[in-house]
Amino acid sequence: MTWAGNELAGLRPGAGRRPAVAALGGGHGLAASLQALQPVTDRITAVVTVADDGGSSGRLRQEFDILPPGDLRMALAALCSTSEWGLQWRDALQHRFPGEGDLGGHALGNLIIASLWDLLGDPVAGLDLVGRLLGARGRVLPMAVEPVRIAASVLGVDPDAADQVSEVVGQVRVASTSGRVLSVRLDPDPPRACPEAAQAILDADWVILGPGSWFTSVMPHLLVPELREALVHTRARRMLTLNMVMNTGETSGFSASDHLEVLAAHAPDLHLDVVLADPSVIDGDDDQLSETAAAMGAELVRAAVADPDQPGTHDTLRLAAAYRDVME
């Protein structure tokens, strides 16, 4: 969405100090959250999962043993300057080469990020340099300094053995499993956290988890011990943004309250302050969701944040207004 001046003026908070926000996640969900945060604050740090093993990211990861750059690229693009320079470089980073050749399917931004990592030998320095190129209004950091692989315990992968629990390995396979995901873990266990990411969580005024693929974008941060400790001990307030679509893909059969219960099971000492949900995703689960949120210390905030023109997605402007209202 391109922000018009009057829309920005109506959303920007007062002249006081804007909140420092650490937004955790990956993929399209994190990108939506980052775009919504920009009218609210200019002090944004994205902490991005590094478990992707599909597409261009998976190919680069396998060939060069590097962090998968795709989700990091998307976060940088979401934070780009809205100047002509920033938008043109955003489009360049997001450009994907066509065809079936060696470059086919690769995003240019993935190749640029991989090249800078090779030149600089430092993933954080490489991402900071791309951020400068884009005029990014915030910083993008990996959750870990080494690529991780997601492994899930899944019930009913085999339709002929519905009560059998199997292990499913890899982000793509977990995200598309036909069974019910019971729990996830990371390999290596534990991975080496990005120190700057843990510090950003400790320094934040607000930490936002979600939206995003629950087991493959939101949950992995809780499985990195240093990040989990930072989430538990930070003085920031913690907000969980629920997805616009429940009961699909890796969370097939899950209600809104099930999402919270899974979070609590993986990080029982994690306290939340706010759970933000569009009324459409609650749908008969209101009392249970309120009780589950309260058990984690959180208030359930209902806000109309759905995009009426694109079912199942957040509207950037409405989500921005909800973030502003909650943070104020």
Rank of each mutant, 00 (worst) to 15 (best):
Gly104Glu: 14
Asp65Trp: 05
Ser153Leu: 07
Arg137His: 10
Pro13Asn: 04
Val207His: 02
Val21Pro: 09
Ala175Asn: 07
Val157Ile: 14
Asp53Tyr: 13
Asp309Ser: 15
Val184Ile: 10
Met143Pro: 14
Trp214Pro: 07
Trp89Ser: 01
Cys194Phe: 08
Ala32Thr: 01
Ile150Asp: 03
Pro19Asn: 07
Val181Glu: 13
Thr313Met: 08
Leu116Thr: 13
Gly312Asn: 12
Met219Pro: 11
Arg18Lys: 11
Leu93Gln: 00
Thr241Ala: 07
Gln288Cys: 04
Asp325Pro: 04
Ser176Tyr: 08
Glu299His: 13
Leu317Met: 12
Val21Arg: 03
Gln88Val: 02
Ala151Trp: 01
Val275Pro: 10
Pro98Trp: 13
Thr241Ser: 08
Pro268Arg: 08
Pro159Cys: 09
Met244Gln: 15
Ala22Leu: 01
Ala75Ile: 00
Ala265Gly: 15
Arg324Phe: 05
Ala293Asp: 05
Gly253Ile: 04
Ala256Cys: 10
Asp258Met: 10
Asp315Ile: 11
Ala256Met: 06
Val305Glu: 06
Glu146Val: 15
Leu111Lys: 08
Arg43Trp: 11
Asp91Tyr: 01
Ala4Pro: 05
Arg173His: 07
Ala22Tyr: 08
His259Asn: 12
Ala161Lys: 10
Asp278Ala: 12
Leu72Cys: 01
Glu226Cys: 05
Ala298Gln: 05
Asp285Val: 07
Asp307Gln: 09
Val181Ser: 14
His95Cys: 07
Gln88Trp: 00
Asp258Tyr: 12
Leu141Gln: 00
Asp187Ser: 07
Pro308Thr: 11
Ala152Asn: 06
His259Arg: 13
Leu133Pro: 06
Leu289Gly: 03
Gly58Arg: 06
Asp283Pro: 09
Val169His: 03
Ala175Lys: 00
Ala20Ile: 08
Pro188Leu: 02
Asp91Gly: 02
Val245Leu: 13
Pro195Asn: 13
Gly156Met: 03
Arg132Gln: 09
Met219Asp: 10
Gly249Asp: 12
Val305Ala: 12
Glu328Lys: 02
Ala200Phe: 09
Leu30Ser: 00
Leu76Cys: 02
Asp285Met: 08
Glu7Thr: 10
Thr177Tyr: 01
Ala298Tyr: 08
Leu60Phe: 06
Ser115Lys: 11
Ala75Cys: 12
Thr292Glu: 07
Asp128Gly: 07
Cys80Gly: 00
Val326Phe: 04
Ala200Tyr: 06
Arg90Gln: 11
His271Gly: 00
Leu231Tyr: 02
Glu291Leu: 10
His221Thr: 12
Leu108Asn: 00
Val21Ile: 07
Thr248Asn: 11
Arg180Met: 14
Glu146Lys: 00
Asp278Ser: 14
Ala193Val: 02
Arg96Ser: 04
Leu260Tyr: 09
Thr251Cys: 10
Gly249Ile: 06
Ala265Asp: 15
Met74Thr: 15
Ser290Thr: 15
Leu108Tyr: 05
Pro188Ser: 04
Ala204Glu: 06
Gln35Asp: 10
Leu209Glu: 05
Ala4Ser: 11
Asn247Arg: 00
Thr316Glu: 12
Gly70Ala: 13
Leu72Tyr: 07
Met246Val: 09
Gly179Asn: 10
Leu319Phe: 09
Asp189Ile: 01
Ala294Thr: 09
Val281Met: 14
Leu116Phe: 14
Trp206Lys: 04
Arg59Leu: 02
Ile113Leu: 01
